[in-house]
Structures are given as structure tokens and as C-alpha cells.
Design a protein around this nucleic acid. Sequence first.
DNA 1: TATTGTTATACTCTATAACTATA
DNA 2: TATAGTTATAGAGTATAACAATA
Lengths: 168, 168
Amino acid sequence: MSEAAPGLRAEELGAYFALVEVSNLLQYAVDEHLRVDGALSYVQFQVLARLVDSPEGKLRMTDLADGVVYSRSGLTYQAGLLDKRGLITRSPSPDDERSVIVAVTDAGRDLVAQVLPGHVDRVQHLLFEALTADDVAALNSVLGKIRDHMRAAPPRSAKPRARRNQAG
Amino acid sequence: MSEAAPGLRAEELGAYFALVEVSNLLQYAVDEHLRVDGALSYVQFQVLARLVDSPEGKLRMTDLADGVVYSRSGLTYQAGLLDKRGLITRSPSPDDERSVIVAVTDAGRDLVAQVLPGHVDRVQHLLFEALTADDVAALNSVLGKIRDHMRAAPPRSAKPRARRNQAG
DNA sequence: TATTGTTATACTCTATAACTATA
DNA sequence: TATAGTTATAGAGTATAACAATA
């Protein structure tokens, strides 16, 4: 594609390839760590982390699906696995009988606590070890810009901005 | 994790989250486009693109696995799909009878040509539309630094730097 | 023996659609 | 009718291990 990239200048192409490669390598390293150290997939880790990070350690299924960007059935599946392992509990919401409240258990908190240092360590090591403070600032700024842009401007094709996981 | 991230400063944490989110959103958009426009997974697209980009339009399975970072059986599976669709051919290497030479067919080239503009368009739109030239330069520079670092410094755990896909 | 690649197999993940129950 | 969630099911992708063939 070196020559066949109309619309992307060399520098952009380079940045694109670097982004894909970096995130693939990072994802691979992080996935492996979570799997080995905590028997968790990244999605499962995200779910637990969000719960731990929430004020009361509980969120509705919908909130979780919103955050993790996941199909509802996929989330049910993952929640089932976490439930089976005693890392979360699920109970009907008192406010809205349709909703399910997911709560981290102590075991879930322990597992996150066990896994988080190594996780952070990997990220620190892989992503930031070689960077100056200025690099980090620049990266943060530019990626933030891109993220805001992506959120605001869905692909031209786009559906009415609906979440990806909406029944069929 | 807002408070529970020892070893990662706020700015680093922000950059990490932004990276994950940006690459997820990009991946999702790009995957969807390739699937809708060319019935290709990203891996399949990468394989075809590498072949198109190679001097003679042919590479050994091993070269492809190296580039795409893939297990050998996984590559065989994907190559099987591409072969079945007439997008590549596979033939024994004259040099080394163990090797298999994968070659893009005209249909494969056509498909890449058909899909590439839209692909580049998505990337341009999602990733670069909101950026200044300086932003792109900074992104390219910092991500390049990270990539080089990642390649040079595998995770501490690491095996002898071997490729990930080495028999068992 | 080491390398290249395929095959068999089993497992994980994800999406779709049908369904229940509540709002 | 719309929303929240589950279940059944089917398909894609991936990894592992056993295997065959060549170096």
C-alpha cells in the first residue's frame, strides 16, 4: 500500500500503521497478562474495573454495556462467567424491575487488586517507558482530539448514532 | 481505576485509555467497512494487502505469518478462505519443497483496489480529519518511538524474543 | 532434528433472533 | 409499544497438538 494510498500522506500512513501495530502489541501483551495472572479476558477485566471504580460497586447491565461497548447478549454471557466464578452478583433492581444490578463481590475486588499492578506495569513498560514528559503530553492531547472527533463524527454511512448494540 | 493506578500518572492513564478507545473505535469502523464492502476480515485484508504490496505479488506462508502476527494454523485457515474465493493461489515453492508460495490473483488485486479507497477514506476521516499537520507529525513520531521500544523490549516475562506462533 | 505447513479438534467469543417481563 | 435482559443457536476465529514432508 506504500504507493497505493490516495488521500493519506506518507506521514499519516505511517501514523496509522504505527497506531495499529502499537495497539495490537499492547493488546496482546495485556490480554496475555490478564489471562495468565487472573484468568480474565480484557472485556471481563473492563467490567470488573468499571464496577470497582463505580461509587457503590454496582451498575446496571445497560450501564456496563454502554461503557464496554458490547452486545447485550455478549455482556450477559460474560457476566454469566464472572457470576459463576463468584466475582460479581446479579440481582433485580428495586427501582426498575426490568433492570439487573451487577455488583462486585469481595472476591472480585481482590482479583482486580491482584491483577491491577501487573496490568499497570505492562502499560507503563510498553507504552511509556521510552517517552519523555513532552511525548506523553503530546500523545494524550492528540489522541484525546481524535477520540472526541470520533465520538462526534460517526462514519458517514452511519445509523442515527445509535449504540452498536441495539436489538435487531 | 482513577485512583488505583500506581505507576501511571493521570496524563499517562488518559493517554492509555484514549489509545484503547481510539483503536477500538477505529478497528470497529474499519472492520465493518471491509466486511460490508469486500466481505473481508481485517486479517484477510492485511494478507491481501501485503501480497499486493510485495514485489512479485507472492510471499511464503511464513513471511505472511511473520507480518500479520498470526498462528500458523490460523493463517492456514484464513488462506484457505481466500483460496476458496479465488483471491489467492497456493503452490509449493520450487526453492524449498516444504514452503508454500501464496500469490494474489487478479481477482484479489481487484478486490483490494475496490476496497482500498474506502478503507483509506475511513482512516482519513476518523483519524486525521481533526488533526493539524503538527498533530500528525507528533503522533507519528511518538507512536513510532513506542513501536520501536516495544519491538526492542519485549515484556519482562518474555520468551527468547521468539515469534508468538511457534509450534508448541 | 528442525522447519514448513496442514488437519483435527475443542473452545471462546460474538451476533442474531426469539422470548419474557416490566414500563 | 418500548425497554431490559436472557436464552438458544449458529458461525467465525483462534489455539493446541498431532501429523506429514522436506531440509
